[in-house]
Design a protein around this nucleic acid. Structure first.
Lengths: 239, 239
DNA sequence: AAGTGGTCTAGACCACACG
DNA sequence: GTGTGGTCTAGACCACTTT
C-alpha cells in the first residue's frame, strides 16, 4: 500500500474487489482468510477487516459464523403487498427456498398487539415463528400473528409453505387493506442468533397489518431480514 | 470491565446506553469524546468505537463528520405512495424541514432511464438533485427525472418545496401507477459526501417510477436515505 | 492551539468450525 | 489439532473542527 490521500482500507477494498471479480467468484463462494489477505496486501488484519466491512456494508460479501467471508447472492425481489408467498417468489427467481417453523402456538393477545389490531387483550391468537432461507442461506425470521376466528385448527397444518395460500384455499380468507412499515434496523438478540449473524448486523425490518375486506383483523406480521438479501418492490395505484 | 462470557464492547455499549438514558440526552445532543469514554470504561478507543458502532447500527446514535457522536432524532414516517411531499410530511410530525437544490438541468435521457421509463434515448428530460434535512440534519439526497412534455419551464420554478405540488397545481399533472423499489444499500461516493457521512455508511435506497393515468411516463425518482432517518409506511388495498 | 474522530500498526488470546 | 474469525491492547499519526 503506497499512494497518499486515499485510505489504505479503501485501497484494500478496491484491490480485493477487483481480484474477486477477476477470479469470477460466484454466489456463496469463499474469500481467502483474513490473515492471508493481510499478508497479500502488506497490512494488518484490522485494516483488512475494515475493508471487508466496507464490502459487507455494500452488500457484496457477507460473513457466516466464524467460517469466513462469502460472495453475496443476488437480492430476492419481494413484494409485500401481494400474497404470492415466499416459496413461490423464490422459485420464480430460479432460487431454492427453505422454511423452518421454529414455533407455532396459541397465545393470549398481548397489549401492544391488541392496540394495533383491534383484537381484545388476552384473546387467543396464533403465533407462528418461521426462519426462511434462499439457497441454504438464512435470510429472514418471520413472526405471524393470526386471528384464529376464521381459521380453526390452522396450527395442525404444515407451515413450511405459504400461510396465505392456506388461508385462501382452506379457509377462504382474503386480504383487504394492508398497512406496511419498512425501515432499516440492526439485527439483535434472538433474531440475530436465529439468522446466524452477529448482533448489530445490518437488517431490514418489515411489518404488515392485514385486514379483510370488511375491516376485520386477519394477520399481523413482523419480518427481520438480512440487509443484503432482498429488494422490496411494491406497485401502487393512486386514485 | 470484568465479567466473563459477554464481550467487553457489548458491556461498554450497555453501560454507555444506560448512562445516556440516565442523563436524559435528547435528540442531537453530543456524547462524550471517545478518549474520555475509553478512560471511563477502562478500555481502549478501539473497543469504545466498536460499542459506538453497535449503537450506530441500531440507529440510536449517529456521527457527524469529525465532530462527535450524537443522539439520533426520531425517525421520519414517510409514505412514498402518496404526494404529500417532504416539506409537509416533516412539518406534520413537528419537525423542521430544509431542502437545498444542488442542481437542476435539462439533460438527454440516458439509456438506462430510457429502458425503464419508455422515454426515447437522448430525449430531453429534467434532472433535479436535492438534499433534504430534518432539524438541520441531512437525511436524504434525491434525484428527480421528470418528463418535460407536460411541464415546460419547470426548472424556472422554486424547487425547494414539493415538486409534486408544482406538477399538480401549476401543470395539472397527476400520478397514476407507481412502481416503488426499496432496499438497504450503503451510502458511497457523491451521495455519502453530500450527506456528510463516511463512504460505506448504512443507507436505504428508494426509487419510484411514476406514470400518469394513461400510462405516460411522468417522473422517476432515486432517493438515498441515511439508514436511521426514516420509517417507510405504505398503505395498500388488495382487490 | 487544542481537541476530536479517522486511520493504522503489530502484536495477542479466545471460542469455535472443520478436517 | 489446526486454522478461522471475533475480540482486545496500547500505543501512534493525521486531518479536520472548534475554541
Amino acid at each position: 500500500m503506497q499512494r497518499s490521500d486515499i485510505p489504505v482500507y479503501v485501497q484494500v477494498r478496491n484491490q480485493l474487489w477487483q481480484w474477486v471479480q477477476k477470479q469470477q467468484l460466484g454466489s456463496q463462494e469463499r474469500l481467502p482468510a483474513e490473515r492471508e489477505l493481510a499478508a497479500r496486501f502488506n497490512t494488518t488484519r484490522v485494516t483488512v477487516r475494515q475493508a471487508l466491512g466496507q464490502l459487507e456494508a455494500e452488500g457484496v460479501i457477507f460473513r457466516s459464523n466464524r467460517r469466513g467471508w462469502y460472495i453475496t447472492p443476488q437480492r430476492l425481489i419481494y413484494d409485500p403487498s401481494v400474497d404470492i408467498g415466499f416459496y413461490k417468489t423464490v422459485i420464480e427467481q430460479g432460487l431454492t427456498p427453505r422454511t423452518e417453523t421454529l414455533s407455532k402456538r396459541l397465545i393470549e393477545t398481548p397489549n401492544w398487539l391488541a392496540d394495533i389490531s383491534g383484537m381484545e387483550k388476552g384473546a387467543p391468537i396464533y403465533h407462528i415463528v418461521r426462519r426462511r432461507s434462499v439457497d441454504l442461506r438464512c435470510v429472514v425470521v418471520e413472526h405471524n400473528y393470526i386471528n384464529p376466528l376464521g381459521c380453526p385448527g390452522l396450527l395442525d397444518q404444515d407451515m413450511d409453505l405459504s400461510i396465505w395460500k392456506l388461508l385462501r384455499e382452506q379457509y377462504d380468507l382474503l386480504p383487504g387493506q394492508r398497512n406496511i412499515e419498512i425501515f432499516p434496523q440492526a439485527l439483535t438478540g434472538v433474531e440475530a442468533e436465529a439468522l446466524g449473524v452477529n448482533s448489530g448486523s445490518a437488517g431490514l425490518y418489515m411489518q404488515r397489518l392485514t385486514l379483510d375486506k370488511s375491516g376485520t383483523f386477519l394477520e399481523y406480521d413482523r419480518e427481520y431480514w438480512i440487509h443484503d438479501a432482498l429488494k422490496v418492490a411494491v406497485q401502487v395505484n393512486n386514485n
